[in-house]
């Protein structure tokens, strides 16, 4: 069927106009929904969802508690640090519940775009890990001084004639290249895009009894899934996290208290969500229990709800009621 474009455009515009007129009228769905949700008390807020397993647990729990208290919550997946801070400055993100950024936010805090809300209770530790079978078979491999001895075993088609050193994703805190050169290691840093890739590397290596050296970190459920992984961390000599030591590469990753960040807009509001974010604080074990449920196939919402139901006192304290 065909007829003049002008008429078609006219017809389409009439419908569009009709739609807009309708938009003017209130609809019965909206009315009934409004009274039920009571959205006005808390407001609508956005949590950044970073793509590692532990974060998903923390972010989801905070989101579920907030929703239960009348907040409208948007969960937005974003790369960590800079991208997220800019989004917070732009007003499209209000909360980062687990930040490893080591103070990269300072500039945004100084500008008044972001408020540092304090520790979230989790303690992070980054390190280079081998699959536990290797740690068992070659105990001395856990001393960085001996890595070169085994470098040949770690060769892949991507690392050429050097051992493959699977480095963390772009946004993570990584000093692998410097560690390699400072310790004169015969390894090549291979960039991976994601936590999932690192999980893949270590899981396959343990399952197939193949060698691998990869960046990883606690808290996280991989240490539950791969027994003995926590003990398979390669130790580097010093553990000084001064700028000079970081720059030299002659150091190992330290334990870090993970932070909460929030938009100024949220913290200035009287919203219950601000209170929840301010008070939220839990242990690595808490986080791991939720992550483990998600890992085993439970939906994040359900896993979070399960923990909330099991820990009413903690939740109550966060809400501040």
């Amino acid at each position: 069927m065909k007829f003049g474009l002008k008429r078609r455009i006219a017809a389409v515009s009439i419908i569009a106009a009709g739609a807009l007129v309708l938009a003017g009228c209130s609809s019965s769905v909206n009315d009934s929904a409004d009274s039920a949700s009571g959205a006005s008390e808390c407001g609508s807020w956005a949590i950044a969802m970073h793509a590692w397993n532990g974060y998903t647990a923390s972010g989801q729990v905070v989101a579920e508690i907030a929703k239960a208290n009348g907040c409208t919550i948007t969960q937005t997946t974003l790369e960590e640090a800079g991208v997220t801070y800019d989004a917070m400055e732009a007003g499209s993100i209000d909360v980062v519940i687990e930040d490893w950024g080591g103070g990269r936010w300072k500039e945004w805090v100084d500008r008044g775009a972001i408020v540092e809300v304090g520790d979230n209770g989790n303690v992070g530790l980054i390190g280079m890990y081998v699959p536990p079978w290797m740690a068992a078979k070659y105990p001395d491999i856990l001393d960085s001084a001996n890595l070169n001895k085994y470098a040949d075993m770690f060769k892949t088609s991507d690392s050429g004639d050097k051992g493959a050193w699977y480095e963390g994703p772009p946004g993570y805190t990584t000093i692998g290249e410097k560690m390699i050169s400072a310790n004169k290691l015969n390894f090549k840093a291979i960039s991976t895009g994601s936590e999932a890739a690192l999980v893949d590397v270590l899981t396959k290596a343990e399952a197939n009894k193949t060698p691998a050296l990869a960046y990883f970190y606690t808290p996280g459920t991989l240490f539950i899934k791969i027994a003995g992984l926590e003990q398979s961390r390669v130790k580097f000599p010093a553990n000084d996290w001064s700028d000079a030591a970081k720059a030299s590469g002659l150091t190992d990753y330290p334990e870090t208290a993970l932070k909460k960040l929030a938009s100024k807009k949220l913290m200035d509001s009287n919203s219950v969500f601000a209170t929840i974010v301010k008070n939220f604080n839990w242990t690595n074990a808490d986080q791991n229990s939720v992550s483990a449920d998600i890992e085993s196939g439970m939906k994040p919402e359900e896993a979070a709800q399960k923990w909330i139901d099991a820990n009413p006192d903690k939740v109550k304290a966060w809400i501040g009621s």
Binding site: E80, A81, G82, V83, E107, G171, G193
Partner: peptide, 23 residues
Amino acid sequence: GGFVGSGGLGYLVILGGSKPEMQ
């Protein structure tokens, strides 16, 4: 492909987005 481990310039672009000191 910088996203999925291809390295090179693409990786640096993505890195620059995440790490302010690398922007």
